[in-house]
Simulated scan of single mutants.
Amino acid sequence: MILFFKSKVSLFVVTAAVMAIAGVYFLSGGKDGGVINVRGLALVLVTVLTYAIYIVGVNKSCVQKMDGLKMTFYVLLSSALIFGGNLLIKGNGLDVIPSYKAGINLFLLALIPTLISDFTLILAIKQVGSTITAILGCMEPLTALFLGVCFLNETLDGEQLVGIFVILSAVFIIISENRINSDFVKRFIPVFLFNRSK
């Protein structure tokens, strides 16, 4: 947004972005001394770049005025075509769903974290913009960690608790800035307009 659209970013947003990245780092729990896989790191960086292009594109391209539900349909249709093309190139077929329970889980996976998630992401970008949506998106790993602790008997360590605190602080900063700006507009803009009318 800064490089290509000359977006002005406040100190609040920069601080929140740095804190969000730091919080995700702490949540990832990289203290076990694992080896970094270069190919995996490259794929992650490509993912980051394409995700950034996606959320900025929704906000700034000609599709910005398209209905959110219709845009979600086209996004998921494109994803299905890419996935199908990948299967054809690799020569692999789809695996058979092994059980009724697995089928239900796959349906829920398609509905909640795919369809609903993408639809609400598009609505968020339209309402608050790409930058704030991306920062608030750092709540995703925090939510995953919370669900893992509640339902999968995962454990929390001190580093992850620090990550939770840092991410929540970043979200609080973003919400605070929006509230400050909103209060400023509500209090001072009407006064300015009233004085101009005189």
Rank of each mutant, 00 (worst) to 15 (best):
T15P: 07
I21T: 14
K31H: 14
I82N: 00
T120H: 05
G29D: 15
L152Q: 04
V35W: 11
G34F: 15
D67H: 02
L145S: 09
V75Q: 09
A144E: 09
D118A: 06
L156K: 03
S10H: 10
Q64P: 01
L41H: 04
S169R: 03
M19L: 15
T155F: 06
V44S: 12
F12W: 11
Q64F: 04
P190M: 03
V13H: 12
F12G: 06
F184N: 09
K126A: 13
F26E: 14
S169A: 15
P141G: 12
T72R: 00
D32Y: 09
F83L: 15
L142G: 09
F12L: 09
Y51D: 07
V58L: 12
S117I: 03
I104F: 05
N178W: 01
T47H: 12
L168H: 01
L45Y: 02
F73M: 00
A42T: 13
I132N: 15
L77I: 14
K90S: 15
L136K: 14
I132Q: 15
F4I: 10
V24I: 14
L115V: 08
S197E: 11
D157S: 01
L94I: 10
F151M: 06
L43W: 14
A42N: 03
V166W: 03
M71L: 15
C150S: 15
A16S: 14
Q64S: 12
N92V: 13
N59K: 13
I97W: 05
G68C: 02
L11D: 12
M1C: 13
F165G: 10
K126C: 10
I167H: 01
L156Q: 02
L87P: 00
F26Y: 13
G30E: 04
G68I: 01
S61G: 02
I55S: 06
K126F: 12
L45K: 02
L49H: 02
S79R: 04
Y74V: 05
E159R: 10
K31L: 14
F194L: 07
K65D: 11
Y51P: 01
G93F: 09
M71S: 08
T114G: 01
E140D: 13
G158S: 07
F184C: 08
L161K: 08
S117G: 04
P190V: 02
F4W: 10
S28M: 12
V128D: 04
I173L: 12
F5M: 07
L41D: 05
V191N: 03
F188K: 09
L3D: 07
F83K: 02
A42C: 12
R39C: 07
I89N: 02
G129L: 11
G29F: 11
G158C: 03
D183N: 15
G103N: 00
L193W: 05
V44T: 12
Y51S: 10
G23A: 08
S117A: 08
S176C: 12
C150P: 02
N86Q: 14
A124R: 07
I175D: 05
N37V: 04
F192P: 02
A124F: 05
L11A: 13
K198F: 07
A102W: 03
I180A: 10
